[in-house]
């Protein structure tokens, strides 16, 4: 690398934005070039000075009165937001109850199925949130092998599950595999990262009569849940990705999951 090339890259190098190979090339050049080292130090000092000037400029600082008023307003907004959400949840539950009652006998079986699926979807979403995102489960997760020995032999087949290939804007990274419990439901839980978002595949026992094509289930909040059946199990794919991305991800998971569970 020549001095001119290195100087083009020095700011990206300082910001840790270069690929590993390019960083190594820059470092090798800097080891032998005092002029570029001087240039690097100059740029580093300028960035540091800019940052310190900005965060200590008195005329840019918020006033204590503004900060105090902001805190009060946000606390008020937070309380009313929570009240509104809780009202919407109650209203939603009441509306669902009314709809179920009206549909009555005609749709009883279908409603029961939807209700059971909705409950499982809520549990899957809760598990994703409390296990994969917040690491906040009350019960320690088990290895899939141990859970297969103690609870569901089918869970052992997920020890060989790999990340789906060929999704747009991939790749998908497989982060974790275990079995965990949320609200009394035990799941085989495989955690992926796709496009910077955490995605959970959660599998549990269930014989609801749904097909093996992914179906989106409505739940409260920002998460999306897709579900499909595989033998005597149900699989849920949960994330805060868009519904379209989740449906695509679930499509890619159908074959490997069904292949593992159809004969169990």
């Amino acid at each position: 690398m020549q001095c001119r090339d290195v100087r083009e890259l020095l700011d990206a190098y300082l910001g840790d934005q270069l690929l590993v190979e390019t960083t190594n090339d820059v470092v090798r050049h800097l080891e032998t070039c005092p002029a570029c080292r001087g240039e690097l130090e100059g740029r580093r000092a300028l960035r540091a000075r800019l940052q310190s000037a900005f965060v200590s400029a008195v005329d840019l600082a918020p006033t204590p009165e503004f900060l105090k008023g902001l805190d009060t307003r946000l606390r008020g907004d937070s309380a009313s937001l929570m009240t509104r959400r809780s009202w919407l949840r109650s209203w939603g539950a009441a509306a669902a109850a009314i709809v179920t009652a009206i549909a009555g006998g005609l749709f009883a079986r279908s409603a029961a199925r939807r209700s059971r699926l909705a409950e499982l979807a809520r549990n899957a979403a809760g598990d994703h949130q409390n296990c994969a995102i917040k690491f906040n489960l009350s019960e320690r997760p088990l290895s899939l092998e141990e859970a297969a020995r103690r609870y569901d032999a089918a869970f052992a087949s997920f020890t060989s599950l790999t990340a789906p290939m060929g999704l747009p804007d991939g790749p998908v990274d497989l982060l974790e595999r275990h079995s965990c419990v949320y609200e009394g439901h035990r799941f085989a839980h495989v955690v992926f990262r796709y496009r910077g978002h955490i995605v959970s595949l959660l599998v549990t026992g269930g014989t609801e009569s749904i097909g093996s094509s992914p179906e989106m289930l409505p739940i409260d909040g920002a998460l999306q849940v897709a579900t499909f059946a595989a033998g005597r199990h149900l699989a849920f794919v949960v994330s805060d990705l868009s519904a379209e991305d989740i449906a695509r991800f679930a499509d890619a998971m159908v074959a490997p999951v069904v292949e593992r569970l159809n004969n169990v």
Partner: peptide
């Protein structure tokens, strides 16, 4: 409600000064 506010307060409020600047 309280824990949601506490999470927001802990995560977001430390950035207010620089955001304002």
């Amino acid at each position: 409600d309280e824990s949601a506010w506490r999470a927001f307060e802990a995560e977001v409020l430390p950035h207010v000064d620089r955001l304002f600047r």
